[in-house]
Simulated scan of single mutants.
Amino acid sequence: MSNSTKKGIFVSCSDANHFCDKNQYKEATFWEKVKLNIHLLYCRACRKYSANNTKLTKLVKDPKVISINEYEKKAMKERLKQKMTE
């Protein structure tokens, strides 16, 4: 039986990370969120894991990727070819 199925509010880092992942995808229950937040109060490593998860979620939702058009891409390739042959 894992710590997450016990009645206590203190969970292991493994369970906290699992709850964090579930929370990222809006699948965590109310009690999993409560246990996660309590764990984050005293565990620096899991706070960092949670912060990285939050950053990752934001990047995936809004990647802010800027691509160049085909003309600029061809011009860049030509400049690279010229530089490589010098």
Score class of each variant (00 low, 15 high):
Asn69Trp: 02
Asn53Met: 15
Lys81Met: 01
Asn17Lys: 15
Phe30Ala: 07
Ala28Lys: 05
Leu40Tyr: 01
Met1Gly: 15
Ala75Phe: 08
Trp31Leu: 14
Arg79Ile: 09
Val11Tyr: 03
Asp21Arg: 14
Val11Cys: 11
Arg79Glu: 05
Tyr71Leu: 07
Ala16Glu: 05
Thr85Ile: 06
Met1Leu: 14
Phe10Glu: 08
Cys46Met: 03
Ile66Asp: 02
Asn69Gln: 02
Asn69Ser: 04
Leu56Tyr: 11
Ser67Met: 12
Tyr49Asn: 11
Val11Glu: 05
Val34Trp: 08
Ser50Asp: 15
Ser14Ile: 11
Tyr25Arg: 14
Ile68Val: 06
Lys55Ser: 12
Met1Ser: 15
Glu72Met: 03
Arg79Phe: 04
Ala16Gln: 04
Ile9Glu: 10
Phe10Arg: 09
Val65Ser: 06
Thr85His: 06
Lys61Val: 01
Ser14Leu: 12
Val11Leu: 08
Gln24Ser: 10
Ile9Met: 10
Lys64Trp: 01
Val60Ser: 03
Arg47Gly: 03
Lys26Val: 10
Leu40His: 05
Ala16Met: 06
Cys20Asp: 08
Thr29Cys: 00
Asp21Pro: 02
Leu40Arg: 10
Lys7Val: 07
Cys43Asp: 13
Met84Cys: 03
Lys74Ile: 13
Gln82Asp: 13
Lys83Gln: 11
Met76Thr: 09
Asp15Tyr: 00
Lys64Gly: 09
Glu27Asp: 11
Lys73Tyr: 08
Ile9Lys: 12
Ala16Gly: 04
Leu80Cys: 03
Lys7Trp: 07
Thr5Gln: 15
Ala75Cys: 04
Ser4Phe: 12
Ala51Phe: 11
Lys7Phe: 08
Ala16Lys: 06
Arg79Asp: 01
Thr29Asn: 00
Thr54Ala: 14
Leu40Ile: 03
Thr57Phe: 13
Ile68His: 02
Asn3Phe: 13
Glu32Ala: 09
Glu27Asn: 08
Tyr71Ser: 09
Met1Tyr: 13
Lys58Ala: 15
Lys77Arg: 08
Ile38Met: 06
Thr85Gln: 15
Arg79Val: 05
Lys81Cys: 02
Val65Cys: 07
Lys26Ile: 07
Ser2Thr: 14
Gln24Arg: 15
Lys77Tyr: 07
Arg47Ser: 12
Lys7Asn: 10
Arg79Trp: 08
Ala75Pro: 00
Glu32Ile: 04
Lys81His: 08
Leu41Ile: 01
Ile68Asp: 00
Lys73Asn: 06
Cys13Gly: 12
Asn52Ser: 13
Asn3Val: 06
Thr29Arg: 02
Lys35Cys: 07
Asn17Thr: 07
Asn53Val: 10
Asp15Phe: 00
Thr29His: 02
Glu78Ile: 11
Ala75Lys: 15
Lys61Tyr: 01
Lys64Ala: 12
Lys35Gly: 01
Phe30Cys: 06
Asn23Leu: 11
Lys83Asp: 00
Tyr25Val: 12
Arg47Pro: 01
Lys83Val: 00
Pro63Lys: 01
Asn52Pro: 02
Asn23Tyr: 09
Leu36Asp: 00
Asn52Cys: 10
Glu86Met: 07
Lys33Ser: 13
Ala45Phe: 08
